[in-house]
Structure formats: structure tokens, C-alpha cells
Simulated scan of single mutants.
Amino acid sequence: MTGRAAPPLLTTAYLEAAALHYLERFASSRANLRRVLLTKARRSLAHHGGEREEAEALIEAVIARLAGLGYLDDAAYAEMKTASLIRRGGSRRAIQAKLAAKGVAAETVRAALEEFDPEAERAAAWALARRRRLGPFRPPAARAAHRDRDLAALARAGFPGEIARAVIDAETTEADPADDPTRDMA
């Protein structure tokens, strides 16, 4: 005995309730919600039996219904996720990879990244450096010893070399867009 309760029988009502419960807690793309519901369906099918094709048809119907009601919108999800990842210090490449992993179509990702200009990428690199205490956010005595490591961290995060060098080699944090008192006045 594993101590885990038997999964519910697979019905449209159960899948819709599970989808709504998931969407209450997390923003999601259609493909990601499909993966979540397929996991639940596999557990139910393993315990109660049934055909995978029928489960997939039920899942597609639930996804279509929720999309029709406006609960699922891949374009809005991509824009929201892009803005969030930029604030956290995500590079263009990292954002593309994360959205692709969530099943967002390439055209939708491109549309969400249209406003991701070089200035936004530079601001994201500064945000990551601030969050991880890289470059000018390190104690001055440790900066030179960690320069290569800091550059590598920004490179692994997907930032172009010129942006990574500009951030890591900055003398002070005054170039950090977050320090600009006029940035929110637009």
C-alpha cells in the first residue's frame, strides 16, 4: 500500500475541474495544460482502465472549452511570461527556450519578443547581475578574481558577449537601469 488515494475516474467534469484548479494557481499555455491533464489521465487510466485516445479527446474538448471561455490564451501567456522573465534577468535566448519548453508556438514567441530590444536585454542583464551579485554588485576586492566566472554566468544565461562585458566591467552600479530615477516617469 502506497498511502496514495486512487485517482478519480476520468470524466469531462473531473478534467475540467482539474484544469480550472491548475489555472487558478498557475498561468499556462495550451500545450502545458495538455501535459498536466495527460499526466492525470495516465494515472486514472492505469488504475481504472480505458483508452488513451478517448482520454486525449476529452482533454482536447476541455482545452477547447477553456480557450473559448478565455481562460487559455497562448499570446497573453507569452507576453506575461516574457515580461516576468525580463524583470528576473532573462535573456532573449532564455525566454525563447522557456516559452518553447512550455509549448508556445514559435510565431507566438516571436510576437511576444518583438519589444525585446537591445535596451531591454541590457536591463535584463543588469537585473540578473544584481540578483546574483555579479560584477559591480560584488565587493570591490573580489571583482577581479571573479570576472571570468561572472562573464561565464551571463553567457550561460544567454546574453551576448558585448552586453555581458559592459555589465560585468562597469565601474559602478550607476549604469544599472534600476537606479535611474526617471525610468518610471514615462
Rank of each mutant, 00 (worst) to 15 (best):
V167T: 06
K102C: 13
R35D: 07
A101M: 06
R4W: 09
L15N: 13
L128W: 01
I86D: 00
A75R: 14
L128C: 06
G161Y: 00
E174D: 11
R130F: 10
V104M: 08
W126F: 08
R93Q: 14
A64E: 10
A100T: 04
R52M: 06
T173N: 08
A55S: 02
E53M: 09
A64S: 12
A129V: 11
G50T: 04
E24N: 14
R87P: 00
A6G: 12
E119S: 01
A127L: 05
E162T: 02
Y71G: 12
A166P: 00
A170Q: 06
R138Q: 15
L113K: 02
G49Y: 02
A67P: 02
G89F: 06
K98T: 08
S84E: 08
R35T: 12
A142S: 15
P181S: 07
R43P: 03
R30F: 05
M80Q: 15
K81R: 15
V167E: 05
I86Q: 02
E107Q: 10
I63G: 05
H21K: 14
A46T: 10
R143Y: 11
R130W: 05
A125C: 00
D176K: 09
A170K: 03
E16D: 13
L134A: 09
A5Y: 12
R122V: 08
V167S: 07
R65E: 06
L33H: 08
F26K: 10
